[in-house]
Amino acid sequence: MSSPLLEVRAAGFAYRQEPVLNDISLAIGEGEFIGVIGPNGSGKSTLLKVLGGYLPVQRGSALFKAEPIRRCPKKILARSIAWVPQEHSMAFPFHVLEIVMMGRHPYLSPLRFETEEDHRAAEKALALTGTSALAGRRFDAISGGEKQRVLMAGAIAQETAILLLDEPTAALDLKYQMEILSILKHLNEEEHKTLVVALHDLHLASRFCRRLILLDRGAIAKDGPPAEVLTPEVLEPVYGVRVRLQDDGEGGVHITPEAPCTL
């Protein structure tokens, strides 16, 4: 592995007094497909925002290609790292194409309209996420699964090497969950993009990600391949529940919670 794309060293972050991230160190190399897992409130979103440079670390450092990320010019950074937010509320009735086109912002100077090239990038992103037919629809009039794919299309249109996704499958039906992760798999394997995905669903994480980072109250409980992270010994103290693991026959594991455990 060459020098890491993204790196945090002994990073700490707090919104107010209570620390959300505590002494986190990790490095992310080119082409990785990383799942960030952990219980609610364990700091998954915050870690992604720190990795993208959207939140400042208060202790330690966050680096992009060995440079402090907060000192990189924002537009340059936006050509390398894209972000897919979890929430999808738009204050105003934008159309789907307008939202995808916003991904081209880092390539446009002020007062400029999108060029042919920008249109091509947007069309490609729409096609890749299967949302071409929605282009002229209003964003607030499409379903939750469609919204999530449109937001992904916006990030793909940004044409970055790295994508950070905050729970892209949360609140989606099984079919949409599969669709989203298949798109991510394609991006990683065919387009060689580096992906860091916060995930709730451990089964999906085990099937698609090649490396898992398990967070527990703002600290890394375990960082490694799914087979090492998804074991009862590692999961039970973090989630506070007894689990049973079962091979799903497709390279993933089903994790069944059995009974709360006190430790």
Binding site: K74, A78, W83, F94, H105, P110, L111, L164
Partner: peptide, 24 residues
């Protein structure tokens, strides 16, 4: 304000999205 028009589009779509697209 017209100079910032596209930045304002992104801010109206959410602060973290705007930041990730290079808006200060």
């Amino acid at each position: 304000l017209m100079y910032f028009a596209r930045d304002l589009n992104l801010i109206s779509a959410g602060a973290s999205t705007a930041m990730s697209r290079g808006v200060d």
